[in-house]
Amino acid sequence: MSEDSIISLQKVNKWFGDFHVLQDVDLEVKKKERIVVCGPSGSGKSTMIRCINRLEEHQEGTIIVDGIELTGNLKNIDSVRKEVGMVFQQFNLFPHLSVKENITLAPIWVKKMPKSEAEELAMQQLEIVKIPEQADKYPGQLSGGQQQRVAIARSLAMKPNIMLFDEPTSALDPEMIKEVLDVMIDLAEGGMTMIVVTHEMGFAKTVADRMVFMDEGKIVEEAVPEKFFNNPDSDRTKLFLSQILNH
């Protein structure tokens, strides 16, 4: 494991029942690196990033996040989760709380912040995602793109060092994808360490430091975007790219 790796996966294996979903996965992520993970459905890419914040448990191998090893130790898991933010495909906003309350929830209850301070923080995050006027609305009253941006603000409010994105735009109508990707680009340019699972190759070309292609539970190819898109090593990568880029 190299010294400036903030995330380290070594020989990680996971099974769902008999199905070997992650096979000997090795991955090193440096601070401020932006990684884009792509691959066909069922390749294990979502599972892999969900293992990083322990939403899924790996059975073999080691995962170390910012110096903390992920095991069954609950304290470690909590510490890791405070450092790692996650944005889901289905947004998962809390429908019974307002937008502002969605964002202030964790700072108040986990970081024990006073309410006014938390609300100020929330408004700052809403400015970053460009929807401060929606603060008092409820998730059900917002569009998909707005909801996802609130979800990003909610994660950012905990000041994570690492942000994980699990297909953040896959559930959005086409006209709303751009507003979310713009926010993610801003975030990347601000120096956030990011791992993004996505099909949006335009975004990948703009932002990614490294492309990771997964298929059938294995990392098939890792390369910088120039090489990945123009001259990939593996045939499977070539096949995948041809399917995804030509429509």
Partner: peptide, 16 residues
């Protein structure tokens, strides 16, 4: 890269 490894059976204590 990792083309060499194949699917294995999960560790004994977790299934069956």
């Amino acid at each position: 890269m990792n083309d060499i490894t194949e699917s294995r059976k999960p560790p004994v204590a977790t299934t069956g």
